[in-house]
Simulated scan of single mutants.
Amino acid sequence: MSDVAAYPITSRAFIPLHASPAPTQRPGAERARTKDPLRCTSCSMRAICMPQGLTADELQRIEALICPSRTIRQGETIYRADDAFQNIYAVRAGSFKTVVMHRDGREHVTGFHLAGDSLGLDGVCFGRHSCDAVALEDSKVCIIPFHQLEAMCREVKALQQHVHRMMGGEIVRESSQMMLLGTMSAEQRVATFLLNLSDRLRKRGYSPAEFHLRMTREEIGSYLGIKLETVSRMLSRFQREGLLDTRGKNIRILNHEGLMQV
């Protein structure tokens, strides 16, 4: 289950991605890429979103495949449901939510994604995206043309295995979400959400005990299948029991073991 916290953002001009065509090679494109200061070799998320064990030549080839990072402003979409699938996206900084719309116009949050996560794999199956990907804050993504990635996977074994792991991770995430919604009480859902977030932050070198939520409580409720009021009530209860200290969107876990036992 993917969750989100705040990450530092470097401000750059917004380049809209929604409904844009796949990047094409143009004269000087390679030179422009080499000038991009945010390369894979210097990215703090490299250990999470890049395969391990690459040779210098393989890493250089993958870097040449990835388009320079682009800024997506808060509330903007990378893609929308039913858009043609062309690229996958690596979150370089910031955070996103993926949502599907019910026929009556209600929004259902299907996932939260943070730095190091990939977006867009939902489009692989049918050639079209099945959800909207919306920035929760000013964020950066690296754009990877999928047909070029497929071709390189046939030549770089470690990259092929990494893509398979990403797809497998999507299956595990969806299975975990089904279990969360089908078998857990409201308090267990909120506790699991916070514990998973804590673990993901720890793996990225951030504090697992103190963080700032970028999503609203309404969005958390949508993701967990409970009402906004229930999310607020559970957080207040955890605070009374000494498990958390909550101040708005700022969360501090006081008793990790106690939260696990909810």
Rank of each mutant, 00 (worst) to 15 (best):
H108F: 06
E155A: 01
E137I: 00
S95K: 07
V163M: 11
R128S: 00
E170V: 06
G53N: 13
M234Y: 03
T10K: 04
P8Y: 10
G28Y: 03
I226K: 01
I48C: 00
S232F: 02
R80L: 02
R217D: 15
G225P: 10
R46S: 14
A90K: 07
S95F: 01
D245Y: 12
S232D: 10
S44H: 10
T98E: 10
G94R: 10
R165W: 00
H162F: 09
S118V: 07
H18V: 07
G94H: 06
Q52A: 14
Q160E: 12
V190P: 01
L121F: 15
Y89S: 09
P8E: 13
P208E: 06
R80G: 08
D199H: 11
T77F: 00
V4N: 11
H162T: 04
V124H: 02
T24I: 13
S130R: 11
R233G: 01
A115V: 04
K249Y: 10
L243C: 03
A32D: 09
N250M: 05
T192Y: 05
H162Y: 06
H147W: 01
H162Q: 07
M234N: 03
I78C: 04
G123W: 10
S2A: 11
Y79Q: 05
A186S: 10
K140Y: 08
A5N: 09
S198T: 06
Y223I: 05
N250R: 14
E155R: 11
L228Y: 14
T10F: 13
V141M: 06
A22W: 00
E30N: 08
V156W: 02
Q261E: 14
L235V: 12
G120A: 07
Q261R: 15
T41Q: 10
A84P: 01
E257Y: 08
Y79A: 07
Q161N: 09
S222E: 14
V109R: 12
C67S: 07
H129L: 06
G116N: 07
L114W: 07
R214T: 12
Q60R: 13
A209F: 11
S236N: 15
E219G: 09
G169P: 01
H102A: 12
R31D: 08
T71E: 08
I253E: 04
P37T: 07
C153M: 14
D83H: 05
L65N: 06
E187P: 00
F238R: 04
F146Y: 15
Q261P: 00
E76Y: 13
D3M: 10
L136W: 14
I88T: 13
A209N: 06
I226C: 09
T77K: 14
R165N: 09
D83Q: 07
L235Q: 03
Q161T: 03
E155C: 01
V156I: 15
T183M: 04
I144Y: 04
E150D: 07
R204I: 06
L228R: 15
